[in-house]
Design a protein around this nucleic acid. Structure first.
Lengths: 233, 233
DNA sequence: ACCTGAACACCGTTCAAGT
DNA sequence: ACCTGAACACCGTTCAAGT
């Protein structure tokens, strides 16, 4: 549970990176703590992105030698786990709105997706550490409650809640990949036009297929279908 | 479309890494081609895993200097794109079984998931290049045909097919992450027991929730629900 | 107890130079 | 036209040494 070998001492007041002027022996040496390292790491991910979180960048921002990081928090994987702890514990709760189970669950799915997308890098970090289940546990609890209230039995609640969570997190991970790329090399339209068979004889089909998919609309459609199927029966 | 600056010359017979014996001027220099580089890269991913695919490992396996790789295929991202081309073009077709739309679509989803899981590293590579849509295009075509045959209209076919594809690829990406980790640090059971509220008053609920999820069973449940909801109405 | 620089084993990539 | 080694700018990590 503890993060490294260091004690949870409170952080010394930041003196900035500059050396003290005037005094003979300059204070070019900074003192840090495991707490400060983890918090700074989290800040880097939030302000500069996950791929900028590097041991050297960390040490630079903390004005210490690279090797000091290792003394306080151990290796990078251990550090990432500590950061993941922090992200998980700070992750907000879902606000569910609506009266009946169906709209309530749909709003929960929408809200969860929005939260995860808002902090895509934090989610990616947690996911990379294999801690997604922990991150989603509050949401799972709420969705579970909704399904229980809707009258499902234990088995159906467990499977249904997991289905909804998988659907949301899967959609977020896919979206992220789509957006990170400069663009799919071949657009869906091109892919379809390349093979003009596949139901081209039905009116309207090709037209619908070659239109680019709106991720938001696709998500609402899938959520709505999945949730209604979970609730019926 | 072409892979690099090199021509598609056929590969010279492999002479192995050893130097010719006896002859004064040893043949320590090998001649390669863009084709050979891409094919060898694919082999490395298949036999040693994606993270072992490194420019240096490639050059070692081809018995050339590291820099020769760059001459033939450009930088690593370009190489990965060329490998992705190959994976996409070789990716097998789905075999669909069953008589009615529902079992046919369920078997398609199961088969697609199995194929993607069988070659998780290849899928990860393609996904990393943002080329997932291309990889899934054959499957999309087949699923589209099934939905058309089931009588859905254009809009519903497009949304429904995408929903099924997202569901399958999402589940594969999640499974992969779960398996790559040594183990979730906190198991679902622990997470639930940590907060003993949430419907604990209903009989059977807690018991169902604290049982570890079988990924296979969860997938079948989600697929079945999603597909039946797509087909109705 | 905590911080340091030097060093190592990896990456991807560029470049001037060979033939 | 194609292959080469040297070199650069990055990674994460270890270790002996300082105070």
């Amino acid at each position: 549970m503890t993060v490294g070998r260091g004690q949870g001492a409170d952080e010394s007041p930041a003196r900035g990176a500059g050396r003290a002027r005037g005094t003979g022996r300059a204070a070019s040496r900074n003192t840090i703590s495991a707490e400060a390292v983890v918090e700074t790491a989290l800040q880097i991910v939030e302000s500069e992105g996950l791929e900028r979180l590097t041991v050297r960048r960390l040490s630079e921002k903390l004005s210490v030698a690279v090797t000091s990081i290792y003394w306080h928090v151990g290796d990078k994987d251990t550090l990432l786990d500590a950061v993941a702890d922090r992200i998980v514990s700070r992750f907000g709760r879902l606000t569910v709105s609506g009266a009946r189970p169906r709209p309530r669950l749909e709003s929960a799915a929408r809200r969860l997706r929005a939260m995860l997308r808002d902090q895509a890098d934090l989610v990616a970090l947690v996911h990379g550490q294999g801690r997604t289940a922990e991150l989603l546990q509050p949401a799972r609890r709420q969705i579970t409650r909704e399904l229980v209230d809707a009258g499902l039995d234990g088995q159906e609640v467990a499977l249904g809640a997991q289905a909804i969570l998988n659907h949301v997190i899967g959609s977020v991970l896919l979206d992220r990949q789509m957006e990170r790329q400069p663009a799919q090399r071949r657009t869906p339209e091109e892919l379809w036009l390349a093979d003009a068979e596949a139901g081209a004889h039905r009116p309207g089909i090709m037209q619908a297929l070659t239109r680019p998919v709106d991720a938001e609309r696709q998500f609402r459609y899938s959520s709505s279908r999945l949730i209604s199927a979970i609730l019926t029966k």
